[in-house]
């Protein structure tokens, strides 16, 4: 495997990481902490939205993020032919 494909694979990987970690930061530190009070003015059923993100929503998003990462990386590994046989 040559050097430029290696670099291209790694660059794509880093792009995924940046996007996924940005979402990770926004749902927890953003919605759950920094903007929690503003979001609390919106109510979904019995839940103030900021409180829901802090105690429920952020955790659901975390789980989804990891599985999305698994799917994206498995595809990327195949595309660059670096997957495990």
């Amino acid at each position: 495997m040559n050097n430029s494909t290696r670099q291209a694979y790694w660059k794509k990987n880093l792009q995924y990481l940046i996007v996924l970690l940005a979402i990770w930061f926004i749902v927890s530190f953003g919605c759950g902490i920094l903007f929690a009070d503003t979001l609390n003015t919106i109510k979904i059923g019995g839940f103030p939205l900021g409180f829901w993100f802090a105690q429920q929503g952020a955790i659901y998003v975390f789980v989804i993020l990891i599985f999305v990462y698994v799917v994206l990386m498995n595809r990327l590994d195949k595309a660059f032919d670096v997957d495990e046989q």
């Binding site: 990481l17 970690l21 409180f51 105690q55 952020a58 955790i59 975390f62 698994v70």
Partner: peptide, 17 residues
């Protein structure tokens, strides 16, 4: 108490990625 809930789960995203 949210700090424990998010703090003790969010680390797994860092671990996995």
């Amino acid at each position: 108490g949210s700090q424990y809930l998010m703090g003790w789960t969010g680390g797994y995203v860092l671990l996995a990625l």
